[in-house]
């Protein structure tokens, strides 16, 4: 630890004068997994989208591996985004492309890779998430879990240094949630640096190096699970409620 990859400072964002993020600071070290929790409307999703400027923040400083990123410079921003992968709640696969082409199009258009090389790379990533049989199916022909696995494979083809995951399992039914969670666990094993918003209680408990509890646009609690998940903290209260929902506590 202590080898920062991505740090953001003082991210602020308001929509129509309503502050959604009130100056968030965040630093991700290499191989670290941070998990964002907190009630709906706390700003978790906005924070993740600000971190790769899909939602341009009103203010904020970005540093990726020692280098300050000027997000107002388009070219710099596009290169930055290639290195900061994003996984969406609703998968956001390209509807008009097969699973394979969802991966190759970014390699070919953004990384300017040749067709053969791109296809080989894409096939490797797809088989790593267990979808080598589904390469020629369109998004509409895939289940939710398969779609999310394609989306993760697509993000990985860009060799990102950090992955932002915005509630990756929230749109999935319990039957297929497991296959996506397995893929995320595998990523963690391979040392991928990640920041993830999730309500998946076992991911929070088992994966998090650090938990960030957000409320009304600010991080109100922050710490390692063993420090934070003790009686009396907001985070523990929140996780208890998740446990009640999943039936672990009656």
């Amino acid at each position: 630890m202590g080898d920062p990859i991505l740090s953001v400072e003082n991210i602020k964002k308001s929509f129509n004068g309503v502050p959604i993020l009130k100056g968030v600071d965040l630093c991700l070290n290499k191989g670290e997994i941070k998990i964002l929790i907190g009630p709906s409307g706390a700003g978790k999703s906005t924070l993740l989208q600000c971190m790769n400027c899909l939602v341009p923040p009103d203010s904020g400083k970005f540093r990726l591996e020692e280098r300050t990123v000027d997000i107002t410079n388009k070219r710099e921003l596009y290169v930055y985004r290639q290195q900061v992968g994003m996984i969406f709640q609703d998968f956001n696969l390209f509807d008009h492309l097969t699973a394979l082409d969802n991966l190759t199009i970014a390699l070919r258009k953004v990384k300017k890779m040749g067709k053969k090389e791109a296809t080989a790379r894409a096939l490797a990533e797809l088989s790593r998430v267990g979808l080598e049989e589904k390469t020629h199916l369109y998004p509409a022909q895939l289940s939710g879990g398969q779609k999310q696995r394609v989306a993760i494979a697509r993000a990985l083809t860009m060799d990102p240094k950090v992955l932002l995951l915005d509630e990756p399992t929230s749109a999935l039914d319990p039957e297929v949630m497991g296959e996506v969670i397995d893929v995320i666990r595998n990523l963690a094993k391979r040392g991928m640096t990640m920041i993830m918003a999730t309500h998946q209680i076992n991911l929070i408990r088992t994966l998090a190096d650090e938990i960030l509890f957000m409320e009304s646009g600010a991080v109100v609690e922050q710490g390692q699970p063993k420090v934070l998940l003790v009686p009396g903290t907001r985070s523990q209260g929140f996780c208890d409620k998740l446990d009640i929902l999943t039936g672990k506590i009656k």
């Binding site: 790769n52 992968g85 969406f88 956001n92």
Partner: peptide, 13 residues
């Protein structure tokens, strides 16, 4: 909009 967001997130201009 999510199609555009996905492309942007991958580094498309």
């Amino acid at each position: 909009q999510n199609q555009y967001s996905a492309a942007q997130a991958l580094g498309f201009s």
